[in-house]
Nucleic acid binder design. Structure first.
Length: 453
DNA sequence: GCAACCGCCT
């Protein structure tokens, strides 16, 4: 019987080999599963036990309670908000257990995500009582959640009153609230805030960079230019980051010609162009199909003696995939001490599957499980989507197994993913498996209202 | 404290 709380083991995808016998065999098959981490055991305990027995169960649990273990367990329980808060609250009643500011921040983040603001401020009060905070980080988390919940004005008020909570404002926290607003597309509000308080907090280049980036994010790159002009008029010098923001802004707004001109100006004016600038250009050209220009910028960068980064290779692989040269660069990555990361693997899984080479995509996925980079939520989404391409019944069984595995590993599939797999299984006559998936969906709280089996 | 590579698309 399937449960939400199977112990999570690293590197095991045995089912894939059963279901896809034609998948290539890899060395990872021989790797034995590691025992579960202590935070996984505790998380499973919290998920299975009745709330009234939780205190006793945690008290008698043989774990070596450290602040780190508490934080790790909270991370593992990220998708089970109420349970994780209950867990944390129980721990706060253990008199000898030391909790860290990081653990409080994490709990506050979970409560704020649930929009349980009463719990948020109760935790802040406890943090204060224990003299652990609240810290600027705590306020960054809280304000970000308020903005995400559609309450930017409230977030600004909280920022302006944070010194009453024992956490004085400074330029750093000012820049943080500006950034929080800009990253959630509230750049106009951020800009107003800057204009009102720039004297009081002594706004610096970073403050203006944040606003310029905010305008670039909403594709208002000309506004970004104006803001930066104003910055210079106020005697603040732009930095390389300033230029990189504007460069990306041109590409994002589709102003390719302007982007190229700007890049040339940067070179001409002897900016210390590095890998970040070049990655922006390579990616920008790649997106609009200017493959040769992208390749040229990369080659020139190498000639200049600038070391490539993983991000640069990821951009390049994206650009070159259709030219079949991406595989060559995969090999070059390792020579440049750029170990492929989870994003690199996700690209490969995606592109192999797009090309109809599902087995190769699966092979990359299996190698991830045994390597340094475990599959993330994106990986699972990519691979599950790929299982619908060929309209094969076997592929849907794999999709179902992947769904079970991702939940086991603490990822929360979207409702859409559940429904899609469920429908696929029903259409291919896998009623029994579909029922199993439906039970899982119910446990994850992702059940559609009007669903009937 | 600000800049590069990224998912799905209900």
């Amino acid at each position: 019987m399937l449960t939400l709380c199977n112990p999570i083991t690293r590197n095991s995808h045995p089912f894939l080999r059963h279901l896809l016998p034609h998948a290539l065999t890899t060395a990872s098959a021989a790797t034995p599963p590691l025992p579960p981490e202590p935070e996984t055991t505790i998380a499973n305990l919290v998920l299975t036990i009745d709330s009234q027995n939780l205190t006793l169960a945690l008290k008698t649990h043989p774990a070596q309670w450290t602040p780190e273990l508490v934080t790790k367990t909270l991370k593992r329980l990220w998708n089970h908000g109420p349970k994780s808060l209950q867990f944390f609250k129980t721990l706060t009643h253990f008199p000898t257990l030391a909790l860290s500011a990081a653990a409080f921040d994490h709990a506050i983040n979970i409560a704020a995500r649930l929009r349980d603001y009463r719990a948020v401020w109760a935790l802040v009060a406890q943090m204060k009582a224990r003299r652990l905070g609240p810290t600027p980080k705590t306020f960054a988390i809280i304000t970000e959640r308020y903005v995400a919940a559609g309450k930017p004005d409230k977030a600004v008020k909280i920022f302006l009153a944070m010194h009453h909570q024992g956490c004085p404002q400074d330029l750093n926290s000012f820049n943080t609230i500006l950034d929080v607003l800009c990253k959630s597309r509230r750049v106009e509000k951020a800009y107003s805030l800057l204009k009102v308080f720039r004297g009081r907090f002594r706004a610096d280049t970073i403050s203006y960079n944040i606003i310029a980036n905010g305008f670039c994010l909403v594709k208002q790159t000309p506004r970004a230019s104006e803001v930066l002009k104003e910055m210079v008029e106020r005697g603040l010098d732009p930095t390389l980051i300033t230029y990189n923001i504007l460069l990306k802004g041109f590409f994002r707004a589709g102003l390719i010609k302007e982007a190229w001109e700007f890049f040339l100006q940067m070179k001409k004016r002897k900016c210390e162009i590095g890998v970040i600038t070049c990655t922006t250009v390579v990616h920008g050209f790649g997106v609009v199909g200017e493959v040769k220009k992208a390749q040229k910028v990369f080659d020139e960068m190498i000639e200049m003696g600038v070391l490539p980064s993983v991000a640069m290779y990821n951009a390049l692989i994206q650009v070159l995939w259709k030219m079949d040269r991406a595989r060559e660069y995969m090999c070059r990555m390792k020579d440049d001490e750029c170990e492929p990361n989870v994003q690199t693997y996700n690209l490969l899984v995606r592109y192999y599957c797009d090309d109809g080479e599902i087995e190769k995509g699966v092979e990359v996925f299996e190698n991830m499980g045994s390597g340094n980079y475990l599959p993330n939520l994106d990986t699972y989404n990519i691979l599950i989507s790929a299982m619908f391409v060929r309209k094969k019944s076997d592929d849907l069984l794999v999709a179902g197994k992947l769904l079970i595995e991702m939940v086991d590993r603490g990822f929360l599939p979207r409702k859409f993913t559940f429904n899609r797999v469920l429908n696929g299984l029903l259409l291919t006559g896998n009623q029994g498996f579909a029922k199993e998936i439906l039970r899982l969906q119910s446990k994850c709280g992702r059940l559609p209202h009007q669903f009937r089996l």
